[in-house]
Amino acid sequence: MSGNGKNSKQSSDSQDIQIARLAFIGATIATLGDGIAAIAAGLALEALEKSSNQDSQNLDEQSKQSDTMQKQIDYIISELKQIKRMMK
């Protein structure tokens, strides 16, 4: 009986080791998955920030163009007023 009890103890220990290995493998896979998710979130954030910065730069350019156009319109109006005065 003592030999039979020893085999069942070794079998139980072997099973516990296999369970622990599976738990370790599962934890490792979960950690890798979390790492990949973190990298993906970082890339998404970077892309959004880049897009936001480009939108901001586009707005700045549009504002500058609008200012330039307004100055040109003001100049043309001024010239037209002078021409109108000369014609009176």
Rank of each mutant, 00 (worst) to 15 (best):
A47H: 04
I83K: 04
Q15N: 10
E46R: 00
A41R: 04
I83G: 04
I25M: 04
A41K: 02
E79T: 07
K81R: 07
L22R: 02
E46D: 00
M1N: 01
Q57C: 14
M1L: 03
I36T: 06
K6V: 14
S52D: 13
A41D: 05
A44S: 04
G35P: 00
G26W: 01
S12D: 13
D16P: 03
I76P: 03
D74Q: 06
I83L: 10
T28E: 04
E46Y: 00
T31A: 06
M69N: 13
A20P: 00
I76E: 11
L59N: 13
Q65N: 10
I36W: 02
T28F: 03
N53R: 12
A47Q: 01
A27L: 01
T31K: 03
A38S: 05
R85K: 09
I19H: 10
I19G: 09
S78F: 03
I39R: 02
A23I: 06
D34N: 01
G26K: 01
S78N: 08
Y75S: 12
Q65F: 08
D60P: 01
Q18G: 10
K6S: 14
L32R: 04
K81M: 11
S12K: 07
E61A: 15
G5F: 10
R21H: 09
K64S: 14
I36G: 05
A44P: 05
A27I: 02
G26I: 07
A37Y: 05
T68A: 10
K6E: 09
Q82R: 08
Q82V: 13
L43T: 04
I25A: 05
D67L: 09
E61K: 08
N4D: 08
Q65T: 12
M86V: 15
N53K: 09
K71S: 14
L48K: 08
A38V: 03
I73W: 06
